[in-house]
Nucleic acid binder design. Structure first.
Lengths: 98, 98
DNA sequence: CAGACTGGTCTGTGCCGCAGACTTATTCCA
DNA sequence: TGGAATAAGTCTGCGGCACAGACCAGTCTG
């Protein structure tokens, strides 16, 4: 098995999925945002976005903080340190690929 | 929608899937090989490899030529020009991403 | 001629991406 | 003040896909 093959087969599948890759890439640059921002930016459906976020949280890559802005509920999303490490590692593997 | 998001959401899903990405990346460098070479190199199961190849053929990215080596059947795999273009485009998008 | 090897194909299963309906709470407006 | 509209998600169901492994047809080997 050559190095390219190894690099690809070791890609982090949680991050590799385009829907989640978008989320992680966004959070990596903007630090923090709310659900609606992601909803508009990604153009996903609410259901899809919600499930991707749940998956990222389960993996320990994203922190989901449910709170209020005034009386309106608001969910804030942040990349965890673990998530950032995983994302950086993912990008390194991509570079190895080519 | 920012540029990174756009680049990711326009990624070619056929190629993006790691199983097929391995196949395409291999074929891009070695030009031609047979089924068993891929089988060993990728460490996939036969069923999985066969279905990925079928999908790539359907997309017009890989050419599957069934023939014989002596009396033993042999299937040769090649990237089509379309496949090469698609792969190059995929890599360009990845570069745009970061 | 039995058993092993080559070179694949077929079938089944379980997970996952995705959309949209549903929910609860608040605010706007006539 | 009652009803529509909006915010902010959650829940449910469907279809498709990745993947493994059983199966098969032909060939070689002892």
């Amino acid at each position: 098995m050559n190095e390219t093959v190894r690099a690809i087969s070791e890609l982090n599948r949680v991050i590799h999925e385009p829907g989640r890759l978008i989320i992680v890439a966004l959070l990596a640059t903007i630090e923090e945002c709310d659900f609606l921002y992601l909803l508009h930016e990604t153009e996903m459906s609410k259901g899809n976005l919600g499930s991707h976020l749940a998956r990222l949280e389960k993996a320990g890559y994203v922190e989901i903080e449910k709170g209020y802005r005034g009386k309106v509920p608001q969910t804030l999303l942040r990349l965890t340190p673990t998530g950032r490490v995983a994302f950086d590692a993912y990008r390194e593997r991509l570079k190895d690929m080519f």
